[in-house]
Design a protein around this nucleic acid. Structure first.
Lengths: 218, 218
DNA sequence: TAGATTGTTAATCGATTAACAATC
DNA sequence: TAGATTGTTAATCGATTAACAATC
């Protein structure tokens, strides 16, 4: 059963492995990797076997080989070109986000209705929304980021899907709907912060009142 | 068992309910709410019962009463003051993020080592990191956001925890460690995008090759 | 009242972990 | 070889859903 959580762990393994590789580790054990990401060795092995990744019965896993396989699974073996709709606060931050560059993620164009934000000549051109379809076709883009205001997020999503985009990372604070063969990952910054707020409150209440309660899990 | 996922659903219920309230709904059924957030009615009722929220055996739930209870649980019944460390791309975006304002989340100060970013006189002052402890104490801040570069994220986290901050929303691309009574929510933008990339690839491969496979779940 | 909906228990489903045979 | 580690199966754990008695 491959779900979001498994893939998130794969990302974590990869990050840890890059560090191990940097440190000169030629091989790595499920145990070591588990400790690095805060999991169990059984889960590490299970996850790998799910993707047909195997190690050596005694010698663990070859670090570079393992990294390569994870890179391929996560699409890190080539540059991923994406577009972004909405050049506001979040959109601008993502456009300039350094960490994406080193990770093979390239935002190759932005789209916004506001003419004052448009700039066809910039290194990363900012274009009017109407040009999105043509751009997506011409550049064979499959993935888009939505960072527009809430009220226009669903129509912008519909427009993206209409161009043939297959995956969307959404920062607008609502759950976008699309046909089932489009992958949508909703990141809601308010909700993430609300989550922290809830558990901080719950924890401090617990200290004040009596019943100890270790129920807060992920 | 209260975990992150339950609280995330509470946030979703709240958003849906605000819309229903706007539309003039006085009461709402578990069924309606479930449909709005893409869940089941049983789960809605289960979630509520977990927090001692009850409705009427026939009449469903009172919309305004329900909203109020969720607000209180999610800390929306008062202004939540937070600070942010790292005034780079992400940090700046969050500082200006409109959606926070309307949601009772107030970033009341930023911290950065770069003197060119500091500005004690701004409406939201940007201060040197060394002043964080004093500021946190003076203003009784319990929640911080980390948006600093990866290499300094853990030390900044340690510094925050040392000031007494109890909850952290982390955007640096690594899993922060802290003592167990500190709540940490890691949001890794690269990983979120990697997730989309993986499923887009997996989906397109599936179309090309034969075995249909509905295994991609959340 | 009859019908509809809640609240909760029991059943199911899925994900994680423990355990151990295979084997390098 | 002896010891250690993988790969996988079975056991456990936890979360979701189905079902239904209570009841408005």
């Amino acid at each position: 059963m491959v779900n979001k959580k498994v893939i998130a762990r794969l990302s974590s393994y990869r990050t840890a492995l890059l560090r191990f590789h940097e440190l000169g580790f030629v091989k790595v054990f499920s145990d070591t990797l588990a400790e690095a990401v805060g999991g169990t060795s059984a889960q590490v092995r299970k996850d790998f076997s799910l993707f047909g990744i195997s190690g050596n019965k005694k010698g663990g896993y070859q670090t570079d080989n393992l990294i390569e396989k994870l890179q391929a699974l996560l699409g890190k073996d080539r540059i991923q070109s994406v577009i972004i709709a909405g050049i506001g606060n979040i959109g601008t931050a993502l456009l300039k986000y350094k960490a994406f560059e080193g990770e093979g993620i390239k935002i190759i164009a932005g789209f916004d209705i506001d003419p004052s934000k448009q700039n066809k000549k910039a290194k990363v051109p900012i274009l009017p929304l109407e040009e999105m379809a043509a751009f997506v076709h011409e550049n064979e883009i499959r993935i888009g980021i939505i960072a527009v205001p809430e009220v226009v997020a669903q129509p912008v999503c519909d427009a993206m899907v209409a161009t043939g985009i297959q995956g969307i990372l959404n920062f607008a604070p609502l759950v976008l709907r699309a046909k089932p063969d489009v992958v949508i990952n909703n990141v809601n910054l308010q909700n993430e912060l609300e989550n922290v707020i809830y558990f901080v409150n719950a924890l401090s209440k617990r200290i004040k009142s009596s019943p100890p309660n270790a129920d807060i899990t992920d």
